[in-house]
Design a protein around this nucleic acid. Structure first.
Length: 266
DNA sequence: AATGATGTCAACCGCCCGGTG
DNA sequence: CCACCGGGCGGTTGACATCAT
């Protein structure tokens, strides 16, 4: 590696480090003209001394049209939390449901906002545990179950239903969002504004396949939630579709009734 | 005002996967 | 079937900004 005016040149001669406005301009012009793809040739043809990967990353995370800049909104935050609870660190998958946001952005947001909270929650819980070391077991157990004011954590079995392979779900308290957890089913509820920005196809494409059939008690929970949210969701022309047999979903209108025997993303 | 701690985010790294010859 | 290559993805790093002491 060789330092060059604050820049670094890689072993193969590629430039590294922050992009200059000139480089951005070259890349934007080239991609606008020729489209995405073949990133290795983009770097050559556009006259950029950058690796293909670097070009792709710069385009996808910074130059691509339609990218939102600025703070993640509370609504977006809610979506991130819900989807992360379902998919874990599948940032690119989560990003597909947040138009204008990149996987990198979401990943950074999660790490800075929720890892932090997770840490502080753990810290305070450890502190409590130390302080309560002399407290009788029952009281201690109650304290350990207590979590921070913002984050609720539950352990649910994974789709395999293996108790040894539990998955941690984290939900933020949200004025509208709520969570119900049953023995074998975790259901999360996102703000009813979800469908106002979410592309229908993406939404349905993302429906969580939780298994073949819902147990009667699971269906019951879905139905209960459907009715409960139907009462709540009266804003933004959002309608919750309820199907007492199979569950419910949000949609732009009542034609969008999700009635399959699968899991749900709410 | 100085300094250390913490937060933020762009960019890089390394692994994995699918396409192709 | 296998090796190679390009692209995509999640994890990590490092520079800079902001905050706390």
């Amino acid at each position: 590696m060789v330092g060059l005016m604050g820049w670094v040149v890689g072993e193969q001669g590629w430039r590294k480090g922050p992009w200059t406005p000139e480089e951005d301009k070259l890349l934007s012009q080239y991609v606008t003209l020729h489209g995405e793809g073949r990133w290795s040739s983009v770097s050559r043809c556009a006259g950029l001394n950058r690796s293909g990967k670097s070009c792709r990353l710069r385009w996808v995370n910074y130059l691509r049209p339609g990218l939102k800049r600025g703070q993640i909104t509370p609504q977006e935050e809610g979506i991130i939390i819900e989807l992360h609870a379902l998919w874990g660190n599948k940032w690119s998958t989560i990003a597909r449901y947040l138009p204008g946001r990149t996987d990198n952005e979401i990943k950074n947001y999660w790490r800075t906002h929720f890892k932090k909270k997770e840490r502080s929650t753990r810290k305070s819980s450890e502190r409590r545990r130390t302080q309560n070391a002399k407290i009788k077991p029952k009281q201690q157990q109650h304290d350990n179950e207590e979590v921070g004011s913002q984050i609720n954590q539950v352990m649910i079995p994974t789709t395999q239903g293996n108790n040894n392979d539990k998955q941690e779900l984290t939900f933020m308290d949200h004025p509208i969002s709520s969570t119900m957890v049953d023995q074998n089913l975790a259901i999360s509820a996102a703000p009813p504004t979800l469908s106002s920005w979410m592309d229908d196809n993406l939404f349905w494409g993302g429906v969580w396949n939780y298994g073949d059939q819902l147990a009667p008690q699971q269906e019951q929970i879905c139905s209960k939630m459907a009715l409960s949210f139907q009462n709540q969701a009266t804003t933004n022309n959002n309608i919750i579709s309820a199907n007492n047999n199979n569950g419910f979903s949000w949609g732009e209108d009542l034609n969008n009734i999700y009635s399959d025997h699968h899991g749900f993303i709410f």
